[in-house]
């Protein structure tokens, strides 16, 4: 059973898929979930729903870190990102 289905199963409010969020949004939501879980104010069903959502966020955040590849955009001036590669090659 996917985490989303589990989330809706436990009456979790509809949330954006974790993969569509920025890293910061994901991390913020995850930390909010942990605070809520640690507050011990939730019903069990709600706790399970939040946990499922947290696991989804965790997996997505971890995936983002694992796949992280430096992205470079040049806004001004002439810069060749390949020049970094050259330096690295020389170093190695």
């Amino acid at each position: 059973m996917g985490e989303e289905t589990m989330g809706s199963l436990f009456g979790e409010e509809q949330t954006a898929p974790a993969d569509n969020m920025t890293f910061k949004q994901g991390l913020d939501e995850l930390e909010g979930i942990i605070r809520a879980l640690e507050s011990n104010q939730l019903e069990l069903e709600e706790s399970l729903g939040k946990y499922a959502r947290g696991v989804e966020l965790l997996r997505s955040l971890q995936g983002k870190l694992d796949d992280a590849q430096q992205k470079i955009t040049v806004l001004l001036g002439e810069f060749d990102p390949a020049s970094i590669e050259e330096v690295d090659d020389q170093l190695s």
Binding site: A68, Q70, I72, T73, F79, I84
Partner: peptide
């Protein structure tokens, strides 16, 4: 760029060359 790639590859970099 090398430091960010090594430590924080998830960071997107905007190069403003002047």
């Amino acid at each position: 760029l090398r430091t960010l790639r090594r430590r924080s590859p998830y960071v997107e970099v905007f190069v403003v060359g002047v």
